[in-house]
Design a protein around this nucleic acid. Structure first.
Lengths: 290, 290
DNA sequence: TAGCTGCTATACATTTTTGCATGAATATAC
DNA sequence: GTATATTCATGCAAAAATGTATAGCAGCTA
C-alpha cells in the first residue's frame, strides 16, 4: 500500500512501480486510488498518459514513506535469523575507501569464523543515517554525537603524501614542500570539506594535475605512478611500491568510530560484527604508527 | 501484520491485541502464525492459556516494529491535510510544565487564527525522539545536536525561588541562603540530573520537606502555600500571590529550543505551528527579565 | 497519417484474507 | 471440586484484494 506509493514516486508511473514491486498495474492503480480516497489531503498525483506526477502533498509524504520502508527493511534484516544466533543479515555502512581497501580482509576473517553471517556493504561518502536504519553498523570518520547510538572509538589514521617508486625514479627529488610545485599532484575536485582541510595545512596550493572527489581513484592513480597523492598511512604501507613523500609533513589524522544503534545490542550477530569491526579497525589504525 | 505483532507485544495476548486493533482474535493469531512461518528466525512467541510470551527474537524485533509504527503515524498525520493548507494534524512534544503552564495560551491564539489545525500534545519529561517521529515539533530545554533537525533558539528562562504570600506571612523572614534551612522546601525526589544541578548551586542542601519529580506538583505546592520551591520566573510572575525569595540567588537558566524535523519544512502547517511556538516561547522567555 | 509504444482505466474470474461460530484448555474465585 | 472467565485453535462462509484480459488515450517515428 504505502510501499506502492513509495515505488510510484520513485518510478514515476503505475506500470513501472508495479513491475518493481512484482504487482500488476491495476493493483497499483487501486492502491493509489484507495489512498487518495482515504486521505483527506486531496489528490496525490496528477495522471497523464505519460505516467503519474506527484503533487506537493505527495512530495511531503515521500520522506515519511521512505522512513517507513527503511524501518521495515531493518526489521526484515533483524528477523533474518534468531536473535541469539551467529547467523543472519548485517548491513554495514562505510566510506568507499574503507569498504574497498580496509574492510575486505576483516570481513573475510569474520565470515570464515561465522559462515552463517550474510554481510551487506553500503558504501557512500555521505554518512548514511543509522537512526533512519539505512544500515545496522557504520564505520565513520567523525565522532557521532547522537545519543541512542552505541559508538566506539578505534584510534585514528594518519594521512600522508605517497608516490609510486616508478614515479619517484623518473622525477626530480623532493626535499621540502616547495619542491612539490613542480610535481604531478593528485587531489580533490569539488569536495569543499576536503579542499578546506588541505588548504589549511598547505595554503599555497600549486594546483592539482589530477582532480577527482573519488578517493578510490586517487589511491589508484598513486598506485599507477601518476604522481603524488594523499593516502591513508596503513593503506599505503601495504604496497611495497609506494613510498612516503615529505614524511614529516603533517596533513591530518582521521578519527575512526564504529557505530551501532542501541536497539541492536540485544541481537547477538550485531554484536559479533560490531566487535570484529572494532578489532579490525583498531588494528588498521595502529598500522599508522611505528 | 507487523502492526499486529507490535500490538501483541504490547498487549500480551492475541485477544487483547485484536481488540486494540479492531480485528478478531483468529485473524491476529493467523498473522503471528504467518510471520513465524515466513521468518527463518524461528518462533516469536511461546503460547499459553494466559496469552503469548515474547521470545528473545521477538523482543529484538520490537523496537523496529515500533519505529515502523511511529513512521506510519507520522505519515498519517502529514497526510491529514494538503501540504499547503493551514489545516491538519500537528503533534507537539514538550515537558509537562511547558505543556500545562506555557503552551495553552500560545496554542489558543494559534488555533483561533487557524481553526483547521488539530493539535496533539505529547507531554513527557524524557525528550521524545523527533528522529523517530514520535512528534512533529518539540519544545526542548537542551540544545539539539542532531543534524537533520531544524532548530531555533528562543532565549532562556531563569529559575528562581518562590513562595506564596500566605506562606511568607506565617513564616520567619528570609534574608540569606542560610535562613532557608528552617523553611519548608519543595524539591526533587530521584531525578538525578535536577538534583545534581541544584546541588551545584546549593551544596549544603538542608533537606526537602516535599520531594517529587513531578514539576507540576512542585509548582502546585508552591501555589498552595506549602513552602518554597523553584519555579520558572515567567510562570511565577503571572501569579500575583507568588513572591520571589532570595531574588539575587542564581539557580540556573534553561535554554529553550523549538525543534522540527527537516522533512516537515515543506508542509505549510508545520511551519505555521513552528513559527507560532518560536514566537510564543520567545515572549515567554523574555518575561524572565526586567 | 499510420503504426508503434508507452501509459491508465474497467469488467470479470480467482485467490486470499477476514470474520463468525464453536470447541478445547488453563488459570482464578468461591 | 465446581463454576467462571480467560485464553488459543479450527471449520466454514462472507468479504476483500489480486490478477487477467481488454479497451482507450497520448506521444513518438517513419
Amino acid at each position: 500500500m504505502w510501499r506502492t506509493f513509495d515505488a510510484v514516486i520513485r518510478e514515476g508511473s503505475l506500470s513501472s512501480a508495479a513491475r518493481a514491486l512484482g504487482l500488476t498495474q491495476p493493483t497499483a492503480g487501486r492502491h493509489i486510488a484507495e489512498l487518495e480516497a482515504q486521505l483527506s489531503a486531496g489528490a496525490l498525483f496528477t495522471r497523464s498518459a505519460r505516467g503519474l506526477h506527484a503533487t506537493e502533498t505527495a512530495r511531503a509524504l515521500a520522506p515519511h514513506a521512505a522512513a517507513m520502508a527503511a524501518a521495515a527493511a531493518a526489521l526484515i534484516r533483524t528477523a533474518s535469523a534468531p536473535a541469539n544466533a551467529a547467523a543472519g543479515v548485517v548491513r554495514i555502512s562505510a566510506s568507499e575507501v574503507v569498504g574497498v581497501e580496509v574492510l575486505p580482509p576483516i570481513l573475510a576473517t569474520l565470515h570464515a569464523a561465522h559462515p552463517g553471517l550474510a554481510l551487506e556493504l553500503l558504501l557512500t561518502n555521505t554518512t548514511s543515517d543509522l537512526l533512519r536504519r539505512d544500515a545496522d553498523i557504520a564505520v565513520r570518520m567523525t565522532q557521532p554525537k547522537q545519543q541512542a547510538l552505541l559508538a566506539k572509538s578505534t584510534g585514528r589514521i594518519r594521512l600522508g603524501f605517497y608516490a609510486h617508486r616508478d614515479y619517484l625514479a623518473r622525477s626530480a627529488p623532493i626535499e621540502n614542500a616547495a619542491d612539490l610545485a613542480s610535481h604531478a599532484l593528485i587531489g580533490f575536485d569539488r569536495d569543499a570539506a576536503s579542499l578546506r582541510a588541505i588548504n589549511a595545512v598547505w595554503p599555497d596550493l600549486p594546483g592539482f594535475a589530477l582532480r577527482t572527489d573519488n578517493q578510490l581513484a586517487q589511491v589508484a592513480a598513486v598506485r599507477a605512478g601518476f604522481g603524488i597523492g594523499v593516502v591513508q598511512d596503513p593503506i599505503a604501507r601495504r604496497d611495497p611500491a609506494l613510498f612516503p613523500v615529505l614524511r614529516d609533513t603533517f596533513i591530518a589524522h582521521l578519527p575512526v568510530w564504529v557505530v551501532m544503534h542501541e536497539d541492536l545490542r540485544s541481537t547477538h550477530r550485531m554484536r559479533i560484527v560490531f566487535d570484529a569491526l572494532v578489532k579490525g579497525m583498531t588494528a588498521h589504525a595502529l598500522a599508522s604508527e611505528g
